[in-house]
Amino acid sequence: MNSLIIIFISTVLVNNFVLSYFLGICPFLGVSGRLESAFGMGMAVTFVMTIATAITWLIYNLVLVKFGLFFLEYVVFILVIASLVQIVEMFIRKFSPPLYQALGIYLPLITTNCAILGAALFMVTKGYNLLESVVFGFSGGLGFSLVLLIMAGIREEMYYADVPPVFKGASLTLIAAGLLTLVFMGFSGLVSS
């Protein structure tokens, strides 16, 4: 139980996927313009990431390890994630139309979100068991959503700021993200590894 809490806190705050591993930067720069879309994207990523870590863990340990097929790791992982996103999309559309309305357009984008593949790869290198992997996936998604929301809030304010034209857009967002990273470095003493 203790180790699960440590995984949770360190993944959400200390080793945040976006700010310290740079995973999922593309949606971070693209979607974080508005609070609503940031929320939708964050929820979709958390959802898929939790399921994806569970399934890739099972496939990695029950199939790849057993038959020594390590060289297929990347091909298998990306196929699993791509098909998982498809299945999740169909499943939600059938069983929960309101949820589909909220997440729908963000789901296909997730296949190319490196945070999901990153979570699966980190889970393998860190040697987590099934439960730890699921917590890791869930908190990774939550950390992603947190940063996405903070950034969306900052960008909505920045929209009205009077900045030199060459800094407008991506440049200013990157610099703001840099400052946000400095803020998150304050959490680094929270969990001693």
């Binding site: 034209p165 610099i175 990273t181």
Partner: peptide, 18 residues
């Protein structure tokens, strides 16, 4: 550190725009 990556890239993009 990670923060430096964001800051330097942000400045490079601005210089490119200029």
């Amino acid at each position: 550190l990670p923060a430096g990556a964001f800051l330097v890239l942000g400045l490079m993009v601005a210089i490119m725009n200029r």
